[in-house]
Design a protein around this nucleic acid. Structure first.
Lengths: 219, 219
DNA sequence: ATATATTTTTAGACATATCTAAATTTAAAT
DNA sequence: ATTTAAATTTAGATATGTCTAAAAATATAT
């Protein structure tokens, strides 16, 4: 159906879309795939011609519905095989990625679904990532409140409790937006304020504000 | 290590070498692989450069020790995966070939050996073909005496009990040679003589002679 | 033994996927 | 608003594996 190269690009774009809500650039993809930007451009044209991605030169790319379906299928296979390797063949959870990178490209719906049944329809792979079901439905990582996070945790800002203009204006002023990747650097025991790092800056967030922010676990 | 295409050629050449002892021609391979003779020539040059086959233009080809090792590894994987599909995933034995054709190219010694252990070190795949062990040792199809064969059986002449010059001259005269593919057409109940078919002719073999001929099962 | 047929190889083309280096577009900075 | 820098795309090259059509080698037949 699709080549391994095509599948790998779709998987990478899917991952980038879920890591942050910024639009996906050629360089982003090149970095993630350890290849050159010019190779990415070539492939994006090919994927766009097949209507798997929406691609505007110089303007970035995003998956179409069809492209996401393909990506999810590959991810489903990857995670099911990882589960098989760890639970049945007794591999350690940190040694299965490379092998799953190969197995994820085996083409057979029967195989994937039989494997799924054989494993007892697991919901998560050995790394804790959710396994899409046969219709491509992923149990999305539930958002958690920033107050519940620990130092070192990373998440993507994906919701607010307080959605008043005042609060949103405050976020604007602090240069925080939905989709931003946030890392918890420190939590001040004295007042429960949270010191965070974003892609561009560091800042301190009061307990009151933290209570109003929801983050999705980064995969 | 080797590309899928290379592995598929090695596997095909291995199979041809075991089907008959005639030297393997470009066309033989092209037919088995459903490709063109010119493509085969190209690949044979590549495999010869890597010392996986011995290739003399216009004169045919045969596997080197190294090439046979690679072929046996691929066959081992193919048969182990077939066993897995049938015994664990409940596929029917006649529906697993295509999937195994893909799985046989997954590269990981750890994976193959863990799978082997998980399956309980099976000796034969669901079609009855022997599974090479991790050192590439195949339990060769044991030779059976022609007298023990039934009508319809096929085998390759691979040994004689009587190795006197007189008997070998007799075989020469009858145009029978080691490596010849032989099919049992009829067995005469009256005198236990065997009517056989070879690639080029038909003939009747007396019970006395049949007793002195050993055949290897054709895979 | 020479003509004919078959097999095999070569030559040149194409598709996929990649790269380097140059050109172009967009973003940032003064 | 220009210049400078960074990101992106294009152009041209390479490697793999395949094909068609033509040339060369081998086998077959009279």
């Amino acid at each position: 159906m699709f080549t391994q190269a095509e599948e790998n690009y779709l998987k990478a774009i899917y991952a980038l879309e879920n890591e942050s809500s910024e639009s996906i650039s050629t360089n982003n993809i090149a970095l993630k795939m350890e290849t050159k930007a010019s190779s990415v451009t070539d492939m994006l044209k090919k994927l766009a011609a097949k209507k798997l991605v929406e691609y505007k030169p110089y303007k970035g790319v995003h998956l179409t519905f069809e492209g996401e379906k393909v990506a999810l299928k590959v991810i489903r296979k990857h995670r099911l095989w990882e589960y098989f390797l760890v639970k049945k063949l007794k591999f350690s959870w940190d040694s299965v990625h490379e092998i799953a990178e190969q197995l994820e490209h085996i083409q057979s719906d029967d195989l994937v679904n039989s494997l799924d049944a054989f494993l007892g329809f697991p919901k998560k792979d050995p790394h804790g990532d959710p396994i899409p079901d046969k219709d491509g439905i992923v149990v999305s990582n539930t958002s958690i409140n920033m107050l519940g996070m620990k130092v070192g945790d990373v998440g993507v800002l994906n919701g607010v409790k307080d959605s008043t203009d005042a609060f949103l204006r405050y976020l604007d002023k602090k240069n925080l937006a939905l989709g931003d990747r946030i890392k918890i650097i420190d939590i001040e025991p004295y007042d429960n304020s949270v010191y965070i790092e974003t892609k561009t800056h560091h800042m301190s967030i009061s307990k009151h504000v933290a209570k109003n922010l929801y983050l999705k676990n980064k995969k």
